[in-house]
């Protein structure tokens, strides 16, 4: 009788240890598996795109030089080089038209993510307030497609196109 109960309790302990093993494996998968890396790339690119595209769609002629520095800081690659090249003419145009545009992202979604290449495509919708030459601001809706690149300084905008009428 006693032998029997000992065997039973050893067997139950073995079952408990096996359960622990399964849980440990699945917790490891959840935290570090390939699904988790897709999720973290997706969320990282999305979060960065929301703030960075808002930056790139906003420009205040009274602080144009500082704004254009911010544009450059959130961009990377050939797109950054293009922005840097156009910096002076962009600043001059903003000052000439006395334009102030402020963008607020209303929704965003990642449509593509490549964890190995470190790239993602994010689409965004924005409300853009545009005031020029002292006239009252108009509100425009805009859509954006941003290619995001993972760099040493985080996810940055590698290319940006506007599908809306809202960008100045």
């Amino acid at each position: 009788m006693n032998r029997h109960r000992v065997r039973l309790s050893v067997a139950l302990l073995a079952v408990a240890l096996a359960g622990l093993g399964v849980f440990a494996f699945s917790a490891w998968q959840d935290a570090f598996g390939s699904d988790a890396s897709v999720a973290s790339a997706r969320d990282g690119a999305l979060e960065a795109a929301r703030t960075e595209v808002a930056t790139l769609a906003s420009l205040d002629y009274r602080k144009a030089d500082a704004n254009l520095e911010q544009w450059s800081a959130v961009a990377t690659g050939a797109y950054k080089a293009n922005l840097d090249r156009a910096k002076e003419s962009d600043a001059n145009q903003a000052k000439r038209t006395k334009s102030v545009s402020t963008a607020r992202i209303t929704s965003a979604a990642v449509t593509k993510v490549d964890v190995n290449a470190g790239t993602a495509t994010v689409i965004l919708s924005a409300d853009v307030h545009i005031a020029a030459n002292g006239k009252p601001a108009v509100r425009r809706k805009a859509g954006f497609t941003a290619r995001m690149d993972r760099t040493d300084s985080g996810w940055l905008v590698g290319d940006l196109s506007s599908t809306g009428t809202g960008t100045p």
Partner: peptide
Amino acid sequence: LAAALGVTGALLRSDNEALV
């Protein structure tokens, strides 16, 4: 231990299945 690991895993896992 199993319960602690399960809770940790559930907290770390992203519920959003989009693209995952």
